[in-house]
Design a protein around this nucleic acid. Structure first.
Lengths: 343, 343
DNA sequence: TTAAGCTGTGTTAGCGTTAGCAACTAACAA
DNA sequence: TTGTTAGTTGCTAACGCTAACACAGCTTAA
């Protein structure tokens, strides 16, 4: 367990080759004789040798460190992403350095660039909403820092993106709610300067329209994605003269707020009101009644991101770099939505 | 923004001193003339020079990287801890590398040691329950890897610990519930092989006894800390012939389960049953009725841990190293617990 | 036969720091 | 004056690795 530190020189000596050759083996250079390679690998294995990351980095100006930049209140999402990235990158020899930030800060770009500079990170993964800041991406490009952005959407040039087709999922939700025979359907959107909010809103709204049931203007309100906002907008909608029988909220936090508001007003869910959310976070399954919502394949997104980022860093595998990574969230049916006929 | 990389040599040349002197200034060596120091600092400032971490690390066998090792399902807790540590350590020039693990794995010790070795981490923070594994701590000691353990407790030698006095908090909870005039009080403990579970249980149980209302043996059951376990044990307790009027669960997840069970059985909370949890995680405030629970000052713990770890790494500040860091969780009163008189 | 091309391998100069050792300076005592 | 000392400062060898370059040995084409 507590072996002395053994270096590339030791391996070279032990294997009877030069350290250049050992280096070649480590870095999987093709120009090594088959037997030499096997011999060296055997010694490496035997002595449990692991190349020193710092020395490697100093010489090759690489750090084998990836950064995760985020400003997202949903800790569960973050945690899932972290695990997803790590699953992939640790087996490739990379580690993950975390960096929460304030995405609204005017200093964001500098902050992130300095973060990368400070530890010579090889690349970073950007989570929403920080991933939606184009100026950040520009600055990263200018500094030739490899990065991948996780965003809601499905159409852009895919090189630096991993996308979640929230629009499609929201459309599915529109169909689902309609299939429950609801007539008066409301939506609480997220802040419409967020891409994800727009995608979800448009997916939902357009589909309702296509199905011949366009959303009434007074039944679409904008929230902040926070619980309190859900309560507030929920209360507003539910005290309308002709209140909706179904409310689709931009995320689970706000959906919980709606449920709270309904509860306070004595409105029964799902008998008198159906509520649906988006995210499938911890709350969704714990709340009573359990929330019908939409689940994103977060782990999968994280793996896509890690794969793409490492491909960019290591230069090889051009198809992994340009691969179009779009992921499809799906409806999770629980108890908070029911047929409108019961009313 | 996109300046050429500038090194210690440039600074030395610009300042008209040797790089040895610049190095002294950077590392705050006392043996530098006051004017020289000022001169060099000015140049450093002017050129926005930041020493290269890898080169530094190679030369001094330091990495300026801290590790966070955890196997905790509570993502909110993790997130809070991460932010707390970062707040402190980034201003000291350290970054945080995350490492989820399986604390039950027989390979845990090796896994963690290799994690540290791989990136030459300067030290690690251990979160419960991994922090409770003594053999891990031993191995870390053997490999002289600096570490700090976050645990529930308050009495041990404090050098490697940051402690949360869960026992005291649970005692407070006992007093609070008793003050509500409950007679039949139950507790769902966590797995009793966890230190935190024992602390909470003993704090609660002992205090009840001291107040002349010892817990009935059949009203103490052991859960797994998971939601499903809360449902199961909650159902069990609530279908007892002489069911309790108050249930204290080892954590919020299980408390939510109890609420679910009560709901399914048509038992009104808090009128017919009071439920209390521990953690104050996201659920606690979102659930209906909102959960009366206990909140740990997580950020504070994280800062203590970072401070202690860095003090250990840098060798200085012996009082920070030996400082007894005990933190006191506090009751958060919400809606899930009420007076027993109403029944 | 010879030149040219490939392969596989070794030699070695960095990469940007730290830190051991030596050396310089000024001041002060002898 | 000379020696001693304390306070500063410089020189330079690591740290462990990568990669440019060189070169030997062998194949292939002319």
């Amino acid at each position: 367990m507590n072996q002395e530190k053994i270096t590339i020189n030791d391996i070279a000596r032990l294997a009877g080759v030069s350290k250049r050759t050992v280096s070649r083996v480590i870095n999987q250079s093709p120009k090594v004789g088959e037997q030499t390679k096997i011999k060296v690998e055997k010694i490496i294995e035997q002595y449990n040798y692991v190349p020193d990351k710092q020395a490697r980095g100093l010489a090759s100006s690489r750090s084998y460190l990836l950064g995760l930049v985020y400003d997202n209140p949903d800790a569960l999402y973050i945690d899932d992403i972290q695990r997803g990235i790590l699953e992939f990158c640790s087996q490739k020899g990379y580690e993950l350095v975390v960096h929460p930030c304030r995405y609204k800060s005017p200093d964001l770009n500098n902050n992130v660039v300095n973060f990368v500079r400070r530890s010579k990170l090889d690349g970073i993964v950007l989570l929403p909403p920080a991933s939606e800041v184009d100026s950040l991406a520009d600055v990263l490009d200018q500094n030739s820092i490899p990065y991948v952005r996780l965003v809601s959407g499905f159409s852009e040039a895919s090189e630096n993106f991993v996308m979640s087709n929230d629009r499609h999922a929201a459309a599915e939700m529109a169909k689902y709610i309609t299939s429950l025979n609801h007539q008066k359907i409301a939506m609480i959107t997220g802040p419409l300067n967020y891409r994800s909010s727009r995608e979800r809103f448009e997916g939902f709204s357009n589909t309702m329209q296509e199905m011949g049931q366009p959303l009434a203007a007074d039944l679409v309100v904008e929230g902040t994605n926070q619980y309190e906002s859900g309560i507030e907008q929920g209360r507003h909608l539910l005290t309308l003269e002709n209140r909706p029988t179904a409310i689709f909220a931009n995320n689970d936090e706000m959906a919980s707020g709606v449920i709270k508001a309904a509860h306070d007003l004595g409105i029964k869910i799902p008998d008198e009101l159906s509520v649906c959310g988006f995210d499938d976070n911890l709350l969704a399954s714990r709340i009573i009644p359990a929330l019908t919502t939409i689940k994103r394949p977060v782990r999968e997104m994280a793996k896509f991101a890690a794969n793409k980022l490492i491909a960019k860093i290591e230069g090889g595998n051009p198809q992994a770099i340009s691969q179009n990574c779009v992921v499809h969230p799906e409806i999770v049916i629980r108890e908070s939505a029911g047929s409108a006929n019961k009313v």
